[in-house]
Design a protein around this nucleic acid. Structure first.
Lengths: 125, 125
DNA sequence: GCTTGACTTAGAGTACACTCCAGATATTAC
DNA sequence: GTAATATCTGGAGTGTACTCTAAGTCAAGC
């Protein structure tokens, strides 16, 4: 799979795909003899994983660390798990906060609806 | 209330408080004769609101627009509501995505737990 | 009266995450 | 064979949201 195809498939720019690889968010991508990237299924899996984690707000740095640990093999299992647990907890926290804010926005919107209805009635009088 | 007190109360730096005001995220703060900010209860309310919205990921620009509409008074009620509805929908979307990712992380962590247990057993053999 | 410390401003600097550019090379279409 | 298109690299540029600096003002304590 070419970089353009992967770009289209996941909705990430080719620049971003190269950036992620260079930054170590994705293990080095398979190349053809001429040096051109040829993404395997596994490469695509990593792209999808990183896209998902980035969308949830995990930082470039923490994902880079995770891939680094992954590259160091089985003896980093515990460390990788700890990293994921820490990020999971942070994510949970953020979601909780955002749900509070969602409620608040919903309430605010309902208040606006009442105000707008009140204003319309005034105009009809 | 001085800027230092508000900073402490809401956990925002004094720089950030001044930045928010300058950027129009908060209506101009009350001043003493000598030009020093003297936050009223209402000013604090705005700070708290903006802090909450920022934490949920609403952009500086959209909050600036909201405050601008607010400053223009009653005839912007409908526009303000539309803005809040749009942001509420975006927030909902983000929360949904993050909840998916939370599930995925939890699953990944459980897989790590299994792998780690398996590794320990091997070592004990 | 003078130092200390909190406040003021405008504007420069920083961190993060891309995004774009220039110049080179390679493949495809005609 | 040559023009167009896609890829490559290193490195510069951009947008967002702060964060810091410099230079100045003011009130309180010694």
């Amino acid at each position: 799979m070419t970089i353009a195809e992967v770009s289209k498939k996941y909705g990430l720019s080719v620049d971003t795909l190269r950036y992620y690889e260079k930054a170590g968010l994705i293990p080095p991508v398979n190349r053809k003899e001429n040096g051109i990237r040829d993404y395997t299924e596994q490469d695509c899996g990593w792209v999808e994983f990183i896209k998902c984690m980035r969308a949830a707000g995990l930082s470039i740095e923490v994902l880079r660390q995770y891939i680094e640990l992954y590259a160091r093999g089985n003896r980093t299992l515990q460390k990788r798990k700890s990293l994921l647990v820490a990020e999971r907890d942070r994510l949970k926290e953020r979601i909780g906060q955002m749900q509070q804010t969602l409620k608040r926005l919903n309430y605010k919107i309902s208040v606006y609806e009442q105000k707008i209805t009140a204003c319309e009635k005034k105009l009809l009088k």
